[in-house]
Design a protein around this nucleic acid. Structure first.
Lengths: 215, 215
DNA sequence: CTATACATACATTCGTGTATGTATGTATCA
DNA sequence: TGATACATACATACACGAATGTATGTATAG
């Protein structure tokens, strides 16, 4: 029971990441031992130390495997020929939320990152990655809104920074709350409601100095 | 170095909780050892095991110390004689967000609970408490909105469930994002913006079947 | 034959829980 | 009022398991 073919080794690696996902999910990242992961994958710690440096390395590999091919969609939104960037952006957000609610693996990893993982200074660069993911999200939202603005899909006097934060906040809260209390509401339904309300408010309520249309 | 007066003992207990807050914050709950906490408090583990059962017990004591006297304010909102429940509710939310941003201890504990603590099944009843806090929040939001509804401050055909989720989601996301990226926006400012936009949308956009006034 | 892909064995560290030691506060009684 | 007895508030010491990293063994693919 030793060295098999190259593909078998790669398969073992995938198995280990899969097992790590499950163990991280069940016990939390810090209480998950490498032995737990190895046993869950049907191997020993030797296999882990062959493929990875340590637990952090396994964790990062798990995250890396989830790198989304969403960039293309973002590129489409930002393309100057796109006639309806706001519509594409809406579609993208819907797609993102559907991904989270329908792809079990993605959901598991999100749940691990939001609820079963400690972001401390000692645990860097774990927190940095998480933060960077959020900063990237901000950049994407900004680009999308700016494209929509250039296309005349948004009021010219809109407060972009405020709009960015508000959308990001709502998506973050939506995902967090659903991961924490999955049964408390219909995720995809609420996602649509929130996005539509947000876009409506974008059209009517975001003057340069806060709420300018009522209240 | 032994038994001092009752008040001294109580002081030691407070010191230990204070130290635990700092150590939890710096190292994360699971990587914080009881020795770390004891040293940070200038005592030994013996003192901890005298005052608490184990690390979980320390954690719960830390949470317990934060129990807010917000109930009174909620009671005021729900009081049938209150002429402006929606206004009081807005004040309450503003007050809550100000508390988080201005009280360092409260902020630290929130940060520990959101970012530096793993909510797993094995870690119960830690996750249960966190979830229960959210469920309590839902109940409070519902009561406030219902009071406002009875007072005629909201459209009669409003979709209450949707409104509850949307507010809770926004507050959650706001707090989470600010704890994760404190420098990325002005917390109190955005809190007001979000609340005002939300209340405006409440007045105009929440028909029984989603968005009914535009988009 | 040699590097690979693991399994096995070992040493070490770290955290926990508990048992025990100890000095001081406090109540009791004379 | 002072001596005694006991409870309190810790500190210290010990035993144990668990997790880690590494060193080494080993069978097989190429």
């Amino acid at each position: 029971m030793a060295r098999r073919t190259k593909e078998d080794a790669q398969k073992t690696r995938e198995l280990l990441i899969e097992a790590a996902e499950n163990v991280f999910f069940e016990k939390g990242v810090s209480k998950a031992s490498l032995n737990d992961i190895a046993v869950a994958a049907g191997v020993t710690r030797g296999a882990i130390y062959w493929h990875f440096k340590n637990k952090h390395d396994v964790f990062e590999a798990m995250i890396e495997r989830l790198k989304t091919p969403l960039e293309m969609l973002h590129d489409a939104i930002e393309h100057p020929d796109e006639p309806d960037p706001l519509g594409r952006f809406r579609e993208l957000i819907i797609y993102l939320t559907q991904q989270i609610s329908r792809d079990p693996r993605r959901r598991r990893v999100y749940e691990i990152m939001f609820l079963k993982c400690e972001l401390t200074e000692q645990n860097e660069p774990l927190g940095s990655k998480h933060r960077q993911a959020f900063l990237d999200g901000t950049v994407r939202i900004r680009k999308a809104l700016e494209s929509a603005l250039k296309r005349g899909q948004l009021p010219a006097d809109i407060n972009i920074e405020q709009a960015i934060v508000q959308l990001h906040v709502q998506l973050t809260g939506l995902i967090y709350m659903w991961l924490l209390l999955p049964g408390s509401f219909d995720f995809e339904r609420e996602a649509e409601h929130i996005i539509d309300t947000y876009f409506y408010a974008l059209q009517h309520c975001f003057g340069a100095d806060g709420l300018t249309c009522g209240g």
